[in-house]
Amino acid sequence: MIALVIPIAMTLFAIAALLNLYRLAAGPDIVDRILALDTLMINSIALIVLADIRTGLDVLFELALLIALMGFVGTVAMSKYLLRGDVIE
């Protein structure tokens, strides 16, 4: 059962990532682009975790954690820049 579900989930997350790339390129304003980038990070984390479950290795979970950390810091920095015009006070 899990051998059938994981490829389907990976395909759906890959389609979602492609749609996020479209929104990132054609977003009407910068806020939509920031949200698309944040959602793209979440989809890439999901793809990495699913690939790790499929292969059975435990190495890719650390990569997913690093991407999650960098995505969070990047989203906070971009949002702070939009609100205040400066990242570091």
Results as ranks from 00 to 15, higher is better:
M70R: 06
I88W: 09
A46S: 15
V49E: 03
A46K: 08
T55M: 11
I53Y: 10
A46N: 14
L50H: 10
A77D: 10
V73C: 00
D58F: 00
F61G: 08
S44Y: 00
V76D: 11
L65T: 12
G56R: 07
K80M: 07
K80C: 09
A77M: 13
D52S: 14
T75F: 03
T55P: 06
V49I: 06
A64T: 01
D86L: 05
T75K: 02
I88D: 10
L63A: 15
D86G: 00
I45Y: 09
G74T: 05
F61T: 13
M78K: 02
I53P: 11
L60R: 04
V76I: 15
T55L: 12
L69V: 04
G71M: 02
D52Y: 00
I53S: 12
A68D: 03
V49S: 01
G56K: 05
A46T: 13
E62S: 11
I67E: 11
L65A: 14
G71N: 01
G74C: 04
L82R: 02
I48S: 07
M78G: 08
L63Q: 10
L83H: 03
T55N: 14
T55Y: 12
D86W: 04
A51K: 03
A64K: 05
L82F: 01
I45R: 05
L66I: 13
A77V: 11
I67T: 10
I48G: 12
V59G: 06
I45E: 09
L69Q: 03
I67A: 11
V73W: 02
D86N: 10
L83C: 03
S79T: 15
A77R: 09
L83Q: 05
I88T: 13
E62D: 15
D58W: 00
V87M: 04
A68N: 05
L82P: 06
I53D: 14
A46V: 14
D52C: 06
V49M: 02
D58A: 15
G56W: 07
I48Y: 07
V49N: 04
I48L: 15
A64G: 08
F61I: 10
V87L: 07
L60F: 09
L69F: 12
I53E: 15
L82Q: 06
V76A: 15
F61N: 10
L47P: 12
A68Q: 02
D86A: 07
V73Y: 06
A68K: 03
V59S: 10
A68W: 04
L83M: 06
E62W: 09
S44P: 04
L57R: 14
R54I: 01
L65P: 11
A64R: 01
R84W: 03
K80I: 08
L60Q: 08
F72P: 08
F72Y: 13
D86M: 04
R84V: 03
F72N: 04
L57Y: 14
L47V: 02
L50T: 15
K80P: 00
I45K: 07
G85W: 02
R84H: 06
M78Y: 13
L66F: 10
I45H: 09
V76N: 10
A77H: 08
I45G: 08
K80G: 14
V59T: 14
V73L: 07
G85Q: 02
G74S: 05
L63M: 13
R54Y: 15
I67V: 14
L69P: 00
S79H: 01
L47M: 07
V59M: 01
V49Q: 03
S44A: 11
K80N: 13
D58L: 10
G85M: 01
Y81H: 05
V87K: 01
G56I: 06
